[in-house]
């Protein structure tokens, strides 16, 4: 797995500039315009992993993967590993971003920061848990074409739909309960990610390339 993870990072290096540009744009938009931009960070980690899939397709490395020892299993492991790494990077970015916002905006309490971090982790993991098996079953091209735009739009719709209930929960429940709820949410999505990993391996082994 280490070899393919290394390959994924080397491929990512080649598209690092646009990825960083997106992040900077989000940060600026979030600080200047609206704190809600924070939720779009979830998409940022999905965008990065999509970029790795696209790089593989563009540079025709899929057949190479099938030719190496346990290539497909190693490739899925590496892709889930990079997804989790991206979620960690994302959570750090969200933590920093939310922290700065809590200083800049008086109505944005610092106690919200860990809650927002946990929610973005949970939703990122959920996004990967749903999206990765679909990609391994149908390939990145079909997945991007058929479901990509809809899922991105859908994700935005969901995020803005849950925004009010989240604030309602924050204002109506004790912090202990909120933290426990968020922790459980992260745990549940981690379990879901594991199930998704098993499904992805089966789907990829069935697929020809």
């Amino acid at each position: 797995m280490k070899g393919l993870l290394k390959k994924d990072f080397l491929l990512l290096k080649s598209v690092a500039l646009p990825i960083i540009a997106i992040l900077v744009m989000l940060l600026v938009a979030g600080l200047v315009e609206s704190v809600e931009v924070i939720y779009t960070f979830i998409l940022w980690s999905l965008v990065i992993v999509t970029a790795v899939f696209n790089q593989d397709r563009f540079h025709r490395t899929e057949e190479f993967i099938t030719s190496i020892p346990d290539g497909k299993i190693k490739a899925v492991k590496a892709r889930y590993a990079i997804s989790i790494i991206m979620v960690i990077v994302l959570s750090l970015a969200v933590f920093a971003f939310a922290g700065i916002n809590s200083i800049l905006h008086p109505n944005f309490y610092y106690t919200y920061v860990p809650i927002i971090v946990l929610i973005t982790i949970a939703f990122s993991l959920l996004g990967f848990a749903i999206w990765l098996p679909i990609t391994y079953r149908f390939g990145i091209l079909k997945t991007s074409l058929i479901s990509g735009m809809w899922s991105v739009g859908g994700m935005f719709a969901i995020l803005f739909a849950i925004k009010k209930p989240i604030y309602k929960v924050i204002t109506n429940y004790t912090m202990d309960r909120i933290f426990m709820g968020c922790g459980l949410l992260v745990f549940a999505t981690l379990c879901l990610l594991y199930v998704s990993y098993i499904i992805s391996i089966k789907a990829y082994l069935k697929r020809e390339k």
């Binding site: 070899g3 290394k6 390959k7 080397l10 491929l11 540079h59 190479f64 020892p69 190693k74």
Partner: peptide
């Protein structure tokens, strides 16, 4: 092999595969 990489990078990948 990932054609965007160079032979040096391929060595580090293959060594792990």
């Amino acid at each position: 092999l990932p054609e965007i990489l160079n032979p040096k990078e391929i060595d580090s990948i293959m060594g792990n595969l």
